[in-house]
Amino acid sequence: MPILNKNKRVLGALLTFASLSMSGVSHAETLHFGEALTHQPPVAVSAILASPEAYLDKTVTIEGTVVGVCSMRGCWADIASDARFQKLRLKVQDGDMVFPMHAKGRKAIATGKLYAVHLSQAQTQRYLAALAKRNGEDFDPKTVTEGMAIYQVEPVAVDILD
């Protein structure tokens, strides 16, 4: 069966090539996303969250530990604030940047535009209810009487350091 054996060898070679070319996982020390970072001095996340209107629609550079990553599409990464209980989300359109889950716990530097996501009263109730449920806390939706804004950064450049 020389022809059959030859076909098997070709098929084997194709499968090996495909496996090798698709199974590569990057273990680079520093992960770069988007453009090269400028040397703009970082703004403290706590300063941004204390007065977000001052930075709204402006380009800011932030740095901090990555404390959360979208596990499905890698389309967002949460950056811890220098103040307790605060974080700021880097949010990209699906596929623009894909943040890996193993970035969690590593330091990130990101430059991008700060923008606000305005939630209606009902959306705010659902959002806060979900947070309370996750924290195992009681929550009364009636305490929410107006909507809120969530601030995020749309990054153009991100470095995740080792």
Binding site: T65, V67, A80, R84, F85, K87, K104, G105, R106, R134, N135, G136, E137
Partner: peptide
């Protein structure tokens, strides 16, 4: 690698 207090009752440890 790092730790983070997400809220007064929720703490994350990164390995």
């Amino acid at each position: 690698k790092a730790s983070y207090w997400e809220s007064p009752s929720r703490y994350k440890l990164f390995l």
